[in-house]
């Protein structure tokens, strides 16, 4: 058995992250995350972590996703700390003193980028990127310039195809497990975002009146909300199962992580689309509290890969 938090500890952790996340909306959350020990919290104590394991990472990601913070916990709190565990840079990352991005091809576990530029994701201000080089080695390369923005405000880089930088010893071996944990955290993040969207939509259906009655009294609305609630429960069920399996070192863990992500994309896509449609015009606007979450889910699907890619990786895992 690897690190596995007790249920009561997980609830305490979730509550403290939720408090932080509510306050950190609209700010750069990384200093606060570092201060609270939430970067690399899933690492063992020997590696400087809090033994929170995959379930702890999922709890952190869920609350960050729910609040729609300008962070990608699957990368900043999970993948980068796991891949750099035991290095000086890793220690700096966990302390909030260094910021490292991750390349798209690494997320795909595909060494070949065919000499083409590739994308990288991570915290604003990162100066280095973890990537897979042409030989499949994990490499830490300099980022070519300042970040650009994605539509939800998070950072993206376009990186020229260089095989420069330092090879991280043992990184490629650590990759499969680290990616599974990152994907589990990404799924948890999505469940947080879609859970908040669902609650906002349900509240709006109760309060908004049209044709002389609450929207929620129309049977078509009721049935659609039921289907959203089922989609949400499905995503939560698989996200939780993936994190528990990772902590239990269950041989199905990597498969479950892909399954959790497929379900997160499926449920999240439905909930995001319906949240906009059911909110009507308001849901189309920047001003709606739903907007950052709709964008977050839409962006993350492309960052971590869509359903079809992960159906294949599920079968291969």
């Amino acid at each position: 058995m690897a690190a596995m938090m007790e249920k009561s500890d997980l609830e305490v952790l979730a509550r403290s992250v939720a408090r932080f996340a509510d306050e950190a909306k609209g700010t750069d959350p990384l200093p606060g995350l570092a201060e609270l020990g939430l970067i690399g919290a899933g690492l063992s104590e020997a590696q400087g972590g809090a033994e929170a394991g995959a379930q702890g990472e999922a709890a952190i990601a869920t609350e960050i996703g729910r609040a729609g913070l300008q962070a990608t916990p699957a990368l900043e709190c999970v993948l980068v700390p796991l891949l750099l565990a035991g290095t000086d840079l890793g220690t700096q990352v966990s302390a909030g003193a260094a910021r490292v991005a991750v390349s798209g091809n690494l997320l795909d576990a595909r060494p070949d980028h065919a000499g083409l530029p590739f994308t990288a994701f991570g915290p604003e201000g990162a100066t280095q990127v973890l990537m897979l080089d042409g030989s499949g080695a994990l490499r830490l390369a300099p980022l070519p310039g300042p970040a650009r923005q994605m539509i939800d405000g998070r950072a993206i880089w376009t990186v020229p195809p260089v095989d420069a930088g330092t090879v991280i010893a043992g990184g490629a071996e650590a990759l499969p497990l680290a990616l599974a944990r990152a994907l589990s955290a990404a799924a948890a993040d999505a469940t947080g975002a879609m859970g908040a969207l669902y609650e906002m939509t349900l509240a709006y259906m109760r309060e908004r009146r049209q044709f002389g009655q609450a929207l929620g009294s129309f049977q078509t609305i009721q049935f659609r909300m039921v289907d959203l609630s089922i989609a949400l429960e499905e995503a939560r069920a698989l996200s939780g199962a993936a994190a528990r399996a990772l902590d239990a070192q269950d041989p199905r863990a990597a498969q479950l992580a892909h399954a959790a992500w497929v379900q997160a994309v499926t449920s999240g896509g439905l909930i995001a689309r319906e949240a906009v449609q059911l909110h009507g015009g308001i849901g189309m606007t920047e001003e709606s509290a739903t907007a950052p979450l709709v964008k977050r889910l839409t962006v993350d699907e492309q960052v971590f890969g869509g359903v079809e890619a992960h159906l294949g990786r599920y079968r291969a895992a």
Binding site: T220, Q277, T298
Partner: peptide, 21 residues
């Protein structure tokens, strides 16, 4: 990406698709 987000409007405006149904 912007086009996809922007086009969410078409099932809402001009009489939402729910109203059409």
């Amino acid at each position: 990406m912007a086009a996809w987000l922007n086009l969410r409007k078409v099932t809402i405006w001009g009489g939402s698709n729910e109203v059409q149904r």
